[in-house]
Design a protein around this nucleic acid. Structure first.
Lengths: 213, 213
DNA sequence: ACGTTAACGGACGCTCCCGTCCGCTTGGCT
DNA sequence: AGCCAAGCGGACGGGAGCGTCCGTTAACGT
């Protein structure tokens, strides 16, 4: 009684799917997650129906679009964990994840949000958090990381990092870089002598066009 | 040829105006700025037309609603400036402003946004920033504040603070408190011995219901 | 080459928000 | 007490985003 669905997509359908994902990644990165679904379709050069056929809900689209980024995130953490100097690895993780999030507005939101149906997403996320915990433990053992650091502090920093807005993407990355350096200072036991990244010129953020934030 | 407008509002109009401002403050604090104008009117128990008559644009409403908060902000800075110990005053300013912003979602957005027509707003804001600069200079002289601190770092921290979300207002305040403590650690020259506020339990933020953010 | 059917996209109906108009109500003044 | 304008709010038209339907197109297998 159940009809079999075709296991494989037709060539044009597969192309469109790719173009939709590319468009989604591009627009989510610059505009954030709060873009109309239709806008994604428009940029991909397909009709709305095609978008909805491939990705029935925005959650599905977001999840698929950011799987790459999430793996990049995981790679960063793994790399940090592999660093012979745990404290150095820890700093690297903070710096690079902050930068990743600064470069991609949408990913931050996706990473922070809890997507109930995105099992892979949640799994990788949980794995990464665990890895960071391990890294933090080792970094504490070296005496460079303050003992009162907890994992939630990292989440806190990431959330806070997502609050940084700027007029241009470049400015956001610059601001985020300095912020990461400040965070590292807050986490380390002895005061640094190393200079901070340059302080970005921060104009007050223009009113958000997003009505729901 | 120009008609004179009544200098004074009728009593019922004045009442409604007050109730509108109260409603606006309440809903902006909990929901942020991205609430429909009608919702404010609804909560105030008046029709939409009344709201629009009193506050032609959302910007006007927001500006008027947050003037109090802005003065509170100014008061905090003044108090910090008056503190005999500049470093202590500086810390107080950070802690209390972070808390203020954590308690009121809307105010953060209002404070960060640049409202071209809100002269008072901009003036107080500029005054406060100047005052903080002065305070920072003194705090540096005491040797407690790092010399590489710049005013933009404070803006950065405030922006970052606004990125902190949590399920409950209480949780947000708690998270913000710890964040402020971390920021202070980042800014001070010698490492603190004083313990941090408790680390809040941070569930990943649920997807924002706001379509425009 | 040709028929089958997966795939496409324009168009539709829905909901929600916005800002305004206009006929009714009510406070304030004499 | 009674006038009248200030004030009110329900109702309207417009616009935007959403998710779906259905007639048309073109990819794939034979």
């Amino acid at each position: 009684m159940t009809d079999r669905l075709p296991r494989t997509l037709r060539s044009d359908a597969r192309d469109n799917r790719e173009r939709l994902l590319d468009a989604a990644r591009a627009v989510f990165a610059t505009e954030g997650l709060n873009v109309p679904m239709r806008e994604v379709a428009r940029r991909a050069g397909v009709g709305p129906a095609t978008l909805y056929r491939r990705f029935p809900t925005k959650e599905v689209l977001v999840t698929e679009a950011f799987t790459d980024q999430l793996r990049a995130c995981q790679a960063i953490v793994d790399e940090g964990l592999a660093d012979p100097d745990p404290w150095h690895g820890f700093c690297l993780v903070i710096e690079r994840i902050c930068e990743l999030h600064a470069r991609d507005r949408g990913f931050t939101a996706a990473f922070m949000s809890t997507f109930p149906h995105a099992v892979d997403f949640a799994a990788i996320r949980a794995y990464s958090l665990n890895a960071v915990t391990e890294l933090a433990t080792r970094a504490k053992d070296t005496g460079h990381l303050r003992p009162d650091f907890v994992l939630d502090d990292l989440i806190l920093v990431l959330m806070a990092n997502s609050g940084i807005h700027a007029t241009s993407p470049a400015a956001r990355v610059a601001a985020s870089r300095r912020f990461a350096a400040l965070a590292i200072r807050a986490f380390q036991t002895s005061p640094t002598t190393s200079p901070l990244p340059p302080a970005p010129r921060l104009t007050p953020t223009p009113p958000r066009r997003d009505p729901k934030a």
